[in-house]
Design a protein around this nucleic acid. Structure first.
Lengths: 175, 175
DNA sequence: ACCTGAACACCGTTCAAGT
DNA sequence: ACCTGAACACCGTTCAAGT
């Protein structure tokens, strides 16, 4: 029953759920797996690579098959909300290794009415918005959980919808 | 010539320019000032607080006086580009202490044609876009600087303009 | 009041040595 | 091949003791 890469990733994922991104250290993953920290490096080259693996799992299957950018944005949001600090993890990986997030590369194709470079700009705007929105959303939820912020019945869904509506129609229409 | 809060912030700012956010540690700031790490805590309560101070300096005077959301977005971008890793620093502070960035709180007023809550949604979309866009822009520049990415003559200005155009007109018009 | 010295409780990563 | 033990070079923060 020797360790595998799968188990390391799974262990890291569950530490993420329990402790959040701030509590996700290689040493804690090792502890969670009952192994010494050095052992992880036999299966994974670095913490960054491990996070990239986790990020692509968070986004696995999102967006689903669709040709509607709004639906794609909603899929992305649900996927991010599915993991603790999901948006923060994906943003981090998106920053230093954008190519690891293959699922995001498909977005420009959804802006069929636009010239190619405009379609990539529209997709980037949408991704920045979704990542920023959900990061703020999850961060806020965390602060509420810690009691440092009051529970506010924010219209998160409505606010999110407003933003993707603005970006998608604004990108398509005249500016 | 005893140390002051100003000097600590200034020291941190210049470490930021020289080393980037990843190299900005309390110990390095202390070293830069020729002092022991513990001395900093007499003038600043924590690293987070220090970063908040830096972030508000990065945004100082941005956006300038204007009633055009597009112009405000451009001002924000220039201000962020004015400091190494500026977008990353401001994003970080925006996440855990949004109230420290008073300048961003004025943005909803620029969407005069909208109902109040829609104006705040529009402002949030714009901020997420600007922060995400510039963070990617600066990160990319950094990777080029390190030689890990090829120098690409990207139409950054044009791409940025496309995004703010989409968001502002999309927010104003029918969705 | 302000700073030093030294510690506490952590990090990511490497690598000889064991099995 | 896979893991341990132990180290290296770091962190942020605290706090007695000095001046």
């Amino acid at each position: 029953m020797t360790l595998s890469r799968e188990q390391v990733v799974a262990g890291a994922y569950s530490v993420l759920q329990e402790q959040g991104l701030g509590g996700l250290s290689m040493r804690r993953v090792a502890q969670h797996l009952g192994v010494q920290p050095g052992a992880l490096y036999y299966h994974v080259p670095s913490k960054q690579e491990l996070l990239a693996e986790i990020a692509s799992r968070i986004l696995a299957g999102a967006p689903g098959p669709t040709d509607d950018p709004r639906r794609a944005a909603r899929d992305l949001r649900s996927a991010l909300l599915g993991a603790r600090d999901g948006a923060e993890v994906v943003s981090f990986v998106h920053a230093f290794r954008p190519d690891a997030l293959t699922t995001l590369a498909t977005l420009p194709a959804l802006f069929g009415g636009l010239a190619p470079r405009e379609a990539t700009w529209a997709a980037r705007a949408l991704v920045h918005y979704v990542l920023g929105f959900v990061a703020e959303e999850q961060n806020h939820a965390e602060l509420v959980r810690l009691g440092v912020l009051a529970e506010d019945t924010s219209d998160a869904d409505e606010a999110f919808e407003f933003g993707i509506g603005a970006i998608t129609t604004g990108a398509a229409g005249p500016r």
